[in-house]
């Protein structure tokens, strides 16, 4: 493989190292510098950081793979007319319909980003695709069962999570329908060319490009989450006490920074002993909708201009909806 690329360019143009050369140098440097690298990571803090960082990556990759396989299959084998047929034409109805479809994808949040991207390519209106993006990780059966297990003594939590997750997805979708502009999204493939490019080659290419792009940003998000986990001691949240307002703010920020998988966050939420139920629900509503890893993934998939608008919007809506639903279910007291 190296031989094929070294041949042509060097003779004609000024030499610029290609990706393969850089890759070779990186791998070689890694092997040569293994000793210093090991001693760098032997400091206790770095050791913990590297374990958490690798853990987030290892855990998220299978779900991202599921996402890009589905995304690739849609790009290669599902015609755009299919989605025009099954989704209502009016945005007001298409958004909740797409949100409800989130029940069908048994995975966590990483997988839904490339799928939502592919749905937009296939002519699904962005607001509906985004409603799916937000609802899939929050309300799929695996996540709801995990939530019911974690809160086995208060079955209201799983229901509250279902309501808050779906509501957040639909509200954000509707708002995006009103304010969203196409130019905020990274330019897309022209649909004409896309219609022709079908079959296995497209399937393969879509999976490869979707994965490499999203996974790079996933790694970035994992690094931030691991840094937060290492630098911020768990103890600081113990002093929040039972103030609902303070706990909601704290839980929202924590959900964003910790970037937990939506299948695990219920267990973590259940272990916050001093936090009122409303705060825990906000944690479970914000987490699957938006966190540092997801914001990075979205920036990589949809473009930065999109992410800096969509992430804050989702965060605010999730906090408001989470608090509102929480108050409806549990009231102010607990």
């Amino acid at each position: 493989m190296t031989a094929t690329t070294e041949r042509p360019p060097a003779t004609r143009r000024r030499y610029r190292p290609g990706s393969l050369e850089i890759l070779g140098v990186v791998l070689l440097a890694g092997i040569v510098l293994r000793g210093p690298l090991e001693s760098l990571f032997s400091a206790p803090g770095m050791r913990t950081w590297s374990t958490v960082f690798v853990a987030v990556c290892v855990q998220a990759v299978p779900f991202l793979v599921l996402g890009v396989v589905v995304s690739g299959a849609i790009a290669a084998y599902v015609p755009a007319s299919f989605f025009r047929r099954i989704l209502p034409q009016q945005a007001a109805l298409a958004v909740p319909a797409a949100g409800a479809c989130g029940v069908l994808l048994p995975g966590c949040e990483c997988g839904s980003v490339p799928i939502a991207n592919r749905l937009m390519d296939r002519g699904v209106r962005p607001s509906a695709a985004l409603a799916f993006l937000l609802s899939a990780p929050a309300i799929n059966p695996v996540v709801l069962v995990a939530t019911a297990v974690a809160f086995s003594t208060d079955h209201r939590m799983a229901w509250a999570r279902l309501v808050a997750g779906l509501l957040t997805a639909v509200v954000v979708g509707w708002i995006w329908e009103r304010i969203g502009r196409p130019e905020w999204l990274a330019p897309r493939l022209k649909s004409g060319a896309d219609e022709d490019a079908r079959g296995f080659a497209t399937f393969l290419t879509t999976m490869r490009t979707d994965f490499t792009q999203a996974a790079g940003f996933l790694v970035l998000g994992a690094a931030v989450a691991a840094t937060f986990k290492v630098l911020v001691p768990a103890r600081w949240m113990e002093h929040v006490g039972s103030s609902v307002l303070l706990s909601v703010a704290l839980m929202a920020v924590l959900a964003f920074m910790l970037a937990l998988c939506s299948e695990a966050d219920a267990f973590v939420a259940a272990s916050f002993t001093t936090i009122p139920m409303v705060g825990k629900l906000v944690f479970l509503t914000v987490g699957p909708a938006i966190d540092v890893k997801l914001a990075a993934l979205q920036a990589g998939t949809f473009g930065r201009r999109f992410a800096i608008r969509f992430a804050p919007l989702t965060f605010v809506v999730a906090v408001v909806v989470g608090s509102g639903v929480g108050l409806l279910f549990w009231g102010l007291g607990t």
Partner: peptide, 24 residues
């Protein structure tokens, strides 16, 4: 078609993000 998908707007050719996959 492949070139199209490769270059479709996300400017994959200029993106450096995929390099990060090597880190884990």
């Amino acid at each position: 078609a492949e070139v199209e998908v490769d270059a479709h707007g996300h400017s994959h050719r200029h993106s450096r993000a995929p390099w990060l996959i090597l880190v884990p």
